[in-house]
Amino acid sequence: MDEIGYNHRHDHNFCIDRPNGMNSWLMLIVKTPAHFRVDGKEIRTSAHSFIIYTPYTPQYYYPATNEYFDDWMHFFPDEKEQKLMEELDIPFNRPVNIADITDMSAMVRSMCFEHYSSNPFRQQSIDLYFQLLILKLSEKLRKKEEQHERPEGLYFEKLLWIRQSIYRWPSRNYSIDDMAKELSLSRSRFQHLYTETFGVSVNKDVISSRLNKAAELLKTTDLSVKEVGIRVGYDNTSYFVKLFGSIYGLTPLQFKQAEGK
């Protein structure tokens, strides 16, 4: 692993243009919609996508909305790691949507921690995380193919849009009945199909999206805990503090202080 970054934010002016690529491999886990140029063609990818650039491949991408978030790593895979990616048929040099990058992003966060730590086994830990990351990536690609092959796959694009909306606009008041109605499904059928498709319930996704946004606001703004809670849809500050603590292990104020804001 050469360099790695977790949850980096850029504004709408961000643009990467490397006509000759780089001497290293590059993996991006893209959290917001973005534009990529591949073989001279513009491709707009949705949130929850990834791309792996091989060395010396042209790189050109920029935000499709007002801001851009991603995880990234420059790396030099050894022969064993390259063979693993080939055996799992991991696609290179084109963006691919995988519906859910949450667990993959968590792995990158752990890799980032190890990379910048002084742990004696940090390199071995990073190598294991990387192999796990590739395995999980392959699982998601296969699951995506299976979903399109099943009759339920007819709902996949609409479900994906609902999920992307949840993460894009976390403060909205999401009604399960309204979402089910949008797909012409019963409430129970919608919830079952959503969980089956993404491996997590719609309610948990709403909570995750809100707390992820809350963590971002706590790290990057001077908003008070109460203001952050309201921004992400929680008018009850006590409930917000309790919920945040159950996920992050810290109160919002402790988290804010730990991040130096």
Rank of each mutant, 00 (worst) to 15 (best):
I98Y: 09
I98D: 11
I98T: 15
A99Y: 12
A99N: 09
D100P: 08
D100V: 12
D100L: 12
I101L: 03
I101Y: 03
T102Q: 08
D103T: 15
D103I: 15
M104T: 12
M104H: 14
M104N: 10
M104P: 06
S105Q: 08
S105D: 08
S105W: 07
A106T: 10
A106L: 14
A106W: 15
A106Q: 14
M107D: 12
M107R: 14
V108L: 12
V108S: 07
V108G: 05
R109M: 14
R109I: 14
R109A: 12
R109G: 15
R109C: 15
S110G: 11
S110V: 15
M111W: 09
M111D: 09
M111H: 11
C112R: 00
C112I: 00
F113L: 03
F113W: 07
F113E: 01
F113P: 00
F113Y: 08
E114I: 02
E114W: 10
H115F: 14
H115W: 11
Y116G: 00
Y116K: 00
Y116D: 01
Y116N: 00
Y116F: 03
Y116R: 00
S117F: 00
S117W: 01
S117D: 00
S117K: 01
S118F: 03
S118A: 04
S118D: 04
N119F: 13
N119Q: 03
N119I: 10
N119H: 06
P120E: 02
F121D: 03
F121S: 02
F121A: 04
R122F: 06
R122C: 01
Q123V: 11
Q123N: 05
Q124I: 09
Q124C: 06
I126E: 06
I126H: 04
D127H: 08
D127G: 10
L128E: 07
L128I: 09
Y129K: 05
F130K: 04
F130S: 05
F130H: 07
F130G: 02
F130I: 08
F130M: 10
Q131L: 10
Q131N: 09
Q131T: 12
L132Y: 04
L132C: 04
L132T: 10
L133N: 06
L133A: 09
L133G: 06
L133Y: 15
L133K: 06
L135S: 05
K136A: 05
K136V: 06
K136N: 05
K136R: 09
L137A: 06
L137N: 05
L137F: 13
L137Y: 11
L137C: 08
